[in-house]
Each structure stands twice: as structure tokens, then as C-alpha cells.
Write a protein that binds this DNA or RNA. Structure first.
Lengths: 156, 156
DNA sequence: ACTATATAGTTTGATATCGAACCAAAAGGA
DNA sequence: TCCTTTTGGTTCGATATCAAACTATATAGT
């Protein structure tokens, strides 16, 4: 007799559970993205700000390819984002001395101050959050989210 | 003396913590969205599938306005998505008998079977997930995510 | 050394989404 | 009853993103 129900790799409820999870995450991403977008100064998009922020926190001199991988966007998207930032004068692109195909991304002084200004605009947006969503809760679920992100990132 | 540091409404670390949270959520949404998109049959987008799924799970007959609110997209976006679904023959739009401005959204039989097919395509995509991200963990963080979503939803 | 393959970055065409403006219908107030 | 305001839905223009094709350079295998 064939094992029709012997190995229920995915009980129906489990799928539904994961599905709710991704749905909830999708809506949060949408809401927070729109919200941040609205208050960001200098016509910065969330993606552009994230890039500036990344440069300040983790240092600059990264290649576009590594940035695209870090942010999980296509190379084409990263090209576009970097061009926008360069047009605003917030980054500088230099050829990679060791690899003629590659480039290096550096923040300019005005890029750094734009990031400062953006942070200032973003903080009050989260002013009331700790009331209903304490920082401890954020810290508690972050590791789980990281695990999920890593699984999605590696298994594709 | 003015209370310069008296009420640190947002310690710097707290802001950074929330920021990491939203960043992580944004990347997960991006990765899972792209992933689902790739395997969805019938040229369905994630948004379209979510709509079909919503109809099956919570019943149909909703108005576009309520759907837009439920999914946190603009009315224009919902109009567009509904038109696509209608063109595929997956939903039917009827005038609301009680309100001449409004419409009601109903699933067709082929809409229901398209949703079935999409579910079938989606499940294997999550096959390996329980290994590194057990369902219990999903259940554990879901309430927190709901709280976050609700806060974002109400405070805007 | 040569050839094949992989990688860095750009470009192109398509599309989902947004915000804002718009029209029509409903609801509320004087 | 009329006028104002709110609400439901569509349309429009702009834009961020994707996938795929393409060029150029680097790496690897024989």
C-alpha cells in the first residue's frame, strides 16, 4: 500500500501558518516603507537612504555587486540606485584598482550629512512605537527574523 | 537649565534596533515576494494570489475599498489588481445593490481553482523551511508582528 | 597558452505601486 | 431642502524594481 499519508511533509496548517507569517511581514514592509518614504528629505528613497546608512555603519568602498547582494536587489536595480545617489552628489564612484570590471562606492561629505538629516527625520516617526511595541520585543524577535532571512537567502 | 538630556525619548540604540527590525523585515518581504512570484502559475502576481486567497478564506462579496484597506494598498492599486483578475476571469465584479458608488467582488469557479493550483505550486517552495525555521518559531513571533502591523496601521 | 566559463556592470522593456486629481454618489447640517 | 463634506472608484504620470540580454574583464581547466 502506498504511503498516502505516511509522510505529511507539510501539514496543511503549517503551510497556512508560514503563509500568514509572510503576509504579515509583507504588509509591515509596505506600511513602514511608505511611511519612511514620506518623511525622508532630499527626495531620498528608502533604498537610497539604506545605502547611505550602510556606508556609514559598515564603511564604504564596497563594490556595486556586493551591495546588490547585501540588499537583495538585482544588479540593474543597484546601478539605478547608485546613479541617483551620484546625481545628488551623495556618493562617488571610483574604478577598482585591482579589477577593471569593478567599481568602488564612496560616500561624500554631503552624503554623510544627508544621512544625518534623514535619520533626524526618521526618529520622530517612531516616537510612539515603544508604547505598544517595546524595544525588548524587537530584540526578542530579531534573531528569528534573521534566521528566516538567511534561509531565504541561501536556499534559492 | 533646560532639560537637554532629561527625557531621552529615543536612546540612539533604540532607534538603531527598530531600524534593524524594519530592515530585516523589508529584506524578507523582498526575498519571499520574488520567490513566490517566480513559481506562481497563470501569470499571477503575489498581490493577485493574496486576493484570491483572501476571498476563499474569509468569503467574498467584499468591496474594493475594504480590500484596499485590508491589504494596505491605495485604491488605485486595488482597481488595477482587480482589473487584472477580472481579465483573467478569476473574479466577477457586481454593482452593490445598496450603494450605487460601490461594487462587490466575487470569486469565479476558475478563480477558486487557480488559487488551488497556486497553493500547490507554493507549498514545495517552503519544503525545507521547517528544518531551519520550525513552525513553532513562526507561531511564536506572529503575535509580535501583528502588534507591529496594527500600530503602523492605526498610527499614521 | 587557449578556450570556456563565470563575474561586474549597464541597458532595455515591462509592470506594480504610489500619490494626486478627478467624478459620482452618499451622508450630514443648517 | 440645499450645501458641504465624506466616501467609492477610476485615471494619470512618475518611479522603483525585475528579468533578461549584452559587453567587457577575469578565472579556470586542459
Amino acid at each position: 500500500m502506498p504511503n498516502k499519508t505516511a509522510r505529511p511533509a507539510q501539514p496543511a496548517e503549517t503551510g497556512a501558518l508560514y503563509f500568514r507569517l509572510f503576509n504579515e511581514i509583507g504588509i509591515i514592509a509596505q506600511l513602514s516603507g511608505n511611511r519612511f518614504q514620506r518623511v525622508l528629505p532630499q527626495g531620498l528613497t528608502v533604498a537610497q537612504f539604506s545605502l547611505l546608512n550602510h556606508g556609514v555603519r559598515l564603511g564604504d568602498g564596497w563594490t556595486p555587486a556586493r551591495l546588490a547582494a547585501a540588499f537583495q536587489v538585482t544588479k540593474g536595480t543597484m546601478t539605478n540606485t547608485l546613479q541617483k545617489l551620484e546625481a545628488k552628489g551623495f556618493i562617488r564612484l571610483e574604478p577598482d584598482p585591482g579589477d577593471a570590471r569593478s567599481k568602488r562606492v564612496f560616500l561624500t561629505a554631503s552624503g554623510r550629512s544627508a544621512r544625518e538629516a534623514a535619520l533626524k527625520a526618521l526618529v520622530p516617526e517612531l516616537a510612539g512605537l515603544p508604547g505598544s511595541f517595546p524595544p525588548a520585543l524587537a530584540a526578542e524577535i530579531l534573531p528569528a527574523l534573521e534566521r528566516l532571512r538567511i534561509w531565504l537567502d541561501t536556499n534559492r
